[in-house]
Write a protein that binds this DNA or RNA. Structure first.
Length: 404
RNA sequence: GGGGAGGUUCCCGAGUGGUCAAAGGGAACAGACUGUAAAUCUGUCGGCUCAGCCUUCGAAGGUUCGAAUCCUUCCCUCCCCA
């Protein structure tokens, strides 16, 4: 393939998930230069949960890795201690270093589902405490002297807060400066981010220029609403499909996506060709569920494999459509066959639920043994190996009586 | 430094001496319907040895037969002025 073809293909591929580029010209120049691109990937490891939205950026970086470029994976261990104010209205708790290390490890574990970590030529891990922990106040003041107050508060989030007469703490204003400075230290050529990071990374460009470096290209990526159809995906709203979720959970979560979002999800979170998506667009009204399952399979294929995708689909159809009790359910080993119903359920939940809550489940008709509803929590029941107990919509367990 | 407002059950938010385990909404859970979509209906939603009892309304004391509600002290948050 010719170089210009490769470039065309890359741009084409990127356009699918790109929101904005600063700037397209500079990006093309960068590709044309044949230089090995350094892609800064800065992460705040406050909460190490990557979802398929984050992965959009990772896949773009992976594509560049496959072309021989290098991701500089920057753990913002120093800045995490300050806490990025983005989208926050209260101060973050201070996180101890040990926690940061643990989170970083978990973060990497998930990022490995997409990025290549196996080749030091394609990825290096850095921490910004490397430079900030020994940073001199005098140097820092020099950094500050380059940026004006009005520039910092021009950020939309700060504007909003000013308008709402909310506080802006000084460390929050400093955060973008430090994040920007990272770009200079790492000699970043490119960074691929969510649009909420745009302001901070723009400061990166600014500092790079001031220090005589070529400013990094910034690509912001598209985001979708979460699986609840409301806000964007987030851990706290639990409306995300996480890389850390099992293939089964991924499937289930995909099935929760509102119909109207299926096409967007296909476009942004899978590699299904454009033409095919066009075709689906015409079909989808007729049978949205079919395409939702298709989406779920595609996502699982991407992070797991084809067999899992098929299996999870089958499991889902059997369990929820055909209402067949799944085979691979947990086994509860118990000592005898005579039980008071509530004790059995408590044992399954390992006493993690209060007994009031479990009683309610009984009262509400959520508990059954072999399909037979048990509504009295204090009912005496006789059970044997192989009996299946169901609690609520999604909890089953199988009895196994072990000798004593 | 001065003045003002406030801290209620997961969240928002009512409640100003008994009828308050605390309105209403959201989230969540269960049931019906169903495509683990949307919409809808019903119920639950502090704990327990559960028709009763115990612990909650920032914290600690106090007044009272009785306090989320009144008093005192303390802690915290927010707003305005300087």
């Amino acid at each position: 393939m010719s170089a210009s073809n490769a470039k065309k293909q890359l741009l084409e591929s990127f356009s699918r998930t790109t929101d904005e580029i600063f700037s397209l010209n500079e990006f093309e120049e960068l590709i044309d230069s044949k230089k090995k691109i350094r892609i800064k990937y800065g992460v705040d490891v406050t909460s190490p949960y990557l979802h398929i939205g984050h992965a959009v950026n990772l896949w773009m970086m992976r594509e560049l890795q496959d072309l021989g470029h290098k991701v500089v994976f920057l753990i913002g261990d120093f800045t995490t201690q300050i806490g990025d104010p983005t989208g926050r209205n209260n101060t973050r708790p201070i996180i101890p270093q040990s926690e940061i290390d643990k989170n970083a490890e978990e973060f990497i574990r998930q990022a490995k589902m997409v990025l290549r970590f196996d080749d030091p030529d394609l990825l290096e891990v850095r921490r910004n405490s490397e430079w900030f922990s020994k940073y001199q106040l005098s140097e820092f003041l020099k950094l500050l002297s380059m940026v004006t107050h009005s520039r910092l508060i021009s950020r939309d989030m700060f504007q909003r807060r000013i308008k709402n007469q909310e506080d802006i703490y000084l460390h929050e204003m400093i955060y973008p400066i430090l994040q920007g400075y990272d770009s200079y230290v790492l000699e970043s050529d490119l960074t691929i981010i969510g649009s909420d990071q745009l302001f901070n990374e723009m400061l990166g460009r600014f500092y790079q220029q001031r220090f005589g470096q070529k400013p990094q290209v910034i690509i912001t990526t598209k985001i979708t609403q979460g699986i609840d159809g409301k806000a964007k995906q987030s851990k706290s709203l639990d409306n995300y499909i996480g890389l850390g979720h099992s293939s089964r959970d991924k499937f289930g979560r995909c099935m929760k996506v509102p119909d109207e979002l299926i096409l967007d999800y296909l476009k942004i979170y899978t590699k299904v060709p454009k033409e095919e998506i066009h075709m689906i667009e015409k079909e989808i009204v007729r049978d949205p569920m079919r395409w939702k399952k298709f989406l779920a399979e595609e996502i699982i294929k991407r992070y797991h494999d084809e067999t899992s995708a098929k299996n999870e689909r089958e499991w889902f159809e059997n369990t929820f459509s055909k209402k067949i009790t799944p085979k691979d359910i947990p086994v509860l080993e118990i000592g005898g066959s005579q039980w008071v119903a509530i004790d059995l359920v408590n044992k399954y939940f390992d006493n993690s639920k209060s007994s009031s809550e479990v009683r309610r489940l009984f009262k509400q008709g959520a508990v059954s043994v072999n399909g037979e509803n048990i509504s009295l929590f204090d009912a005496s029941i006789e059970i044997m190996t192989g009996d299946v107990v169901k609690v609520g919509k999604r909890n089953w367990f199988k009895i196994k009586i072990v000798g004593n």
